[in-house]
Design a protein around this nucleic acid. Structure first.
Length: 279
DNA sequence: CATATGTCCTGAGAGC
DNA sequence: TGCTCTCAGGACATAT
């Protein structure tokens, strides 16, 4: 569930082989569930994609971007339970969309159990406008201490809540926010404006390190088993989680304090109250 | 401007 | 056993 930057980056890498291939079909899959949002309508998408060549497969924040030769971009936004696949989906009934390609490239499927995800096609101008820096912050893999201080330094919000704001920094979600603050030893309720530059340095360094490691392990598949890579295999980073979904388990650092769960902005946060001081 | 809250959706798990 | 209820948290619209 909840694909964040590492999971979406893994999806992107899983379909890189379509670069250079020509799209031969694009269709919404008939499905018993409520159809997911596809904009513009499917006939327009088909007209603009079929016969066109894929220039590049990218990622922006938590979205997979299929960039065409004319710079039209097809975006997959998985939100909670969406997957981008090249192979057998976890279930047929939740397959929502498919793309077919020339040259024997495997078809790409979009699968989504809950169906909160979105698919949309933007032209170059629409894409630039939609993802300008005022609408989406810099990628979390590119953050530095001074950058974080500049972005968050005057905010009064709790740092955990602020890190989830995609307009500020793109890619961090609920799971990795807890993991990052735990490793950086920062209390999740600490106000941004009370965090020092040295601490922002540490948060930035930890963010990049954790996200890169999670990518290397192809993301996190939680106990519900929803998240899969493009080959429908689970990720491996869940085995390296320190605090996420580990309420009452011993802190891996002090081995002494049970992990605490609190709710911030209607989302669970996990931390060690001994290792992550408010000071 | 910054921040807070309600909404969408499915299925796992809890409680009775 | 089988029903009802709660919860999980992505992005965004709307409210304060």
């Amino acid at each position: 569930m909840m694909p964040e930057l590492p999971e979406v980056e893994t999806m992107r890498r899983g379909i890189l082989a379509i670069e250079g291939a020509t799209i031969t079909a694009a269709e919404k899959v008939r499905c018993l569930r409520k159809p997911i949002a596809v904009t513009p309508n499917i006939s327009t998408i088909r007209r603009r994609l079929v016969g066109k060549k894929v220039k590049q497969v990218g990622r922006i924040g938590k979205r997979v971007v299929i960039q065409m030769e004319n710079d039209d971009r097809l975006l997959f936004e998985p939100r909670m339970t969406g997957l981008v696949l090249v192979a057998d989906p976890p279930s047929q009934e939740h397959v929502r969309f498919r793309l077919e390609f020339s040259h024997g490239e495997k078809e790409v499927l979009y699968w989504d159990r809950r169906g909160l995800g979105m698919i949309y096609l933007l032209n170059d101008q629409q894409y630039q406008d939609r993802f300008s820096l005022e609408n989406l912050g810099p990628d979390a893999l590119d953050v530095t201490g001074p950058l974080l201080k500049k972005i968050f330094g005057k905010s009064r919000r709790p740092v955990k809540v602020a890190l989830l704001d995609q307009k500020k920094v793109a890619g961090i979600g609920n799971l990795y926010a807890s993991e990052i603050l735990y490793v950086a030893a920062i209390h999740p309720a600490k106000r941004c404006d009370r965090i020092t530059l040295k601490q922002w340095d540490l948060i930035a360094e930890t963010t990049v390190d954790i996200l890169q490691t999670a990518i290397a392990h192809e993301g996190s598949t939680l106990s519900d088993g929803t998240y899969r890579n493009a080959l429908n295999d689970p990720g491996g980073y869940q085995n390296m989680h320190r605090v996420y979904d580990k309420e009452d388990k011993p802190c891996p650092i002090c081995m002494d304090t049970p992990i605490t769960r609190i709710v911030q902005a209607q989302r669970s946060t996990f931390f060690c109250k001994a290792c992550q001081k408010r000071s």
